[in-house]
């Protein structure tokens, strides 16, 4: 459902069980080239076999010698390896990400490469934050988000991601990652904590929208937080998100959330209309069927509710529903192809 990273399990198993092979002096460059112009999965598998000391030494040595595009490729090989071993070897994940950052630092130090390095690093942070968020590693996600915002304080997408981490904390009902600016005080009860965390998330979304008023995902998320908080601005936010949406995923969620808002206000006819709109956009997804079935029950139409349940049962579904990704966190699906393409670019 959530992790779409390359052959993650296979690579992790490979990393754990395969014998360490000797690395020749040019092997690291070959890995970078394999990632860049060959098969990225093979490059990651080869890198997975290296002992940590050899990797550390190679990164230091080759950071000065690789061409800019090779530096990006090597950084991405380390990054994708980190993603692949996140479940099985979590302590090694940050080591690999550290190597990736060393390589990006080397890129930034090259003459005339600063702009490219910044662009790559920004997308890299977005990918890594989403990687940790989608695996419920919210403290790690928050750490990278803070680091990224230190470098790119006015990037609306990073600010949006910071809000997403807070919203996920509220969904899991775990304490929000600690703020360095707040002193210790008595821990609030669960509901209060959840409410405060959602308020903090909303504040981040508003900040992101100040920088980019048409950032539809931020508007969507702000709208949903307002739904959860019973805030009257929810409807306007979600309608605006619908207007600014550039893809059907945002439109699908906006209709779903407008339905959820209407349902919470017992406006069941309106809720049904919104859920029908979501169903039209995502008729392979589970959630609109569930939502509509429930609303038809509330409207006094049990036969229709049953019909919808049977339609869902008969459906050939793909294991994907934007609601699940929204609620549990998901990988940034646009960042990875962009970064891979950047590794190919000369």
């Amino acid at each position: 459902m959530r992790r779409t990273i390359v052959a993650a399990t296979a690579i992790a198993a490979f990393a754990c069980t395969q014998p360490i092979l000797a690395q020749g002096p040019g092997e690291y460059e070959h890995v970078a080239e394999e990632y860049r112009v060959g098969d990225p999965n093979i490059a990651i598998q080869r890198l997975a076999r290296w002992p940590e000391a050899a990797v550390t030494e190679s990164v230091r040595y080759w950071a000065k010698l690789l061409r800019p595009e090779q530096l990006v490729a090597a950084a991405m090989a380390h990054t994708e390896l980190a993603a692949a071993i996140l479940d099985s070897l979590p302590h090694q994940t940050n080591v690999q990400l550290h190597h990736a950052q060393e390589l990006l630092d080397a890129l930034a130090a090259r003459r005339d490469e600063r702009e490219r390095a910044d662009a790559v690093r920004l997308r890299w942070y977005q990918f890594v934050i989403s990687l940790f968020s989608s695996n419920a590693r919210l403290d790690d996600a928050d750490r990278y988000a803070r680091e990224a915002l230190g470098r790119f304080p006015r990037d609306p997408v990073l600010i949006l991601l910071k809000g997403t981490i807070l919203e996920l904390s509220a969904a899991y009902n775990v304490p929000a990652p600690p703020s360095p600016t707040l002193g210790r005080s008595r821990a609030p009860d669960s509901a209060t904590r959840q409410g405060r965390t959602l308020e903090s998330a909303a504040a981040e979304y508003r900040r992101a929208l100040e920088l980019d008023p048409h950032l539809a995902v931020a508007r969507l998320r702000l709208g949903w937080v307002h739904v959860l908080a019973g805030d009257n601005r929810a409807r306007d936010d979600l309608t605006a998100a619908l207007g600014d949406a550039k893809d059907d995923t945002v439109r699908y969620l906006a209709h779903l959330f407008l339905g959820g808002l209407a349902e919470r206000q017992s406006r069941f006819d309106e809720a049904a209309t919104e859920y029908e709109a979501a169903l039209n956009l995502g008729n392979q997804h589970q959630t609109p069927f569930v939502a509509l079935s429930r609303v038809e029950t509330a409207r006094g139409h049990p036969d229709r509710a049953r019909e919808l349940a049977h339609q869902l049962a008969a459906l050939e579904r793909i294991d994907d529903d934007p609601w699940w990704n929204y609620h549990l966190g998901a990988l940034d699906n646009s960042a990875l192809p962009w970064l891979r393409a950047e590794a190919h670019r000369r």
């Binding site: 459902m1 029950t297 049990p302 509710a305 049953r306 349940a309 049977h310 549990l328």
Partner: peptide, 19 residues
């Protein structure tokens, strides 16, 4: 495998009841 959608499952199971 996967996460837990208990409430949604209960709703669907009730709706599917043959009555």
């Amino acid at each position: 495998s996967g996460s837990t959608a208990l409430r949604d499952a209960v709703q669907l199971a009730i709706a599917l009841d043959p009555r």
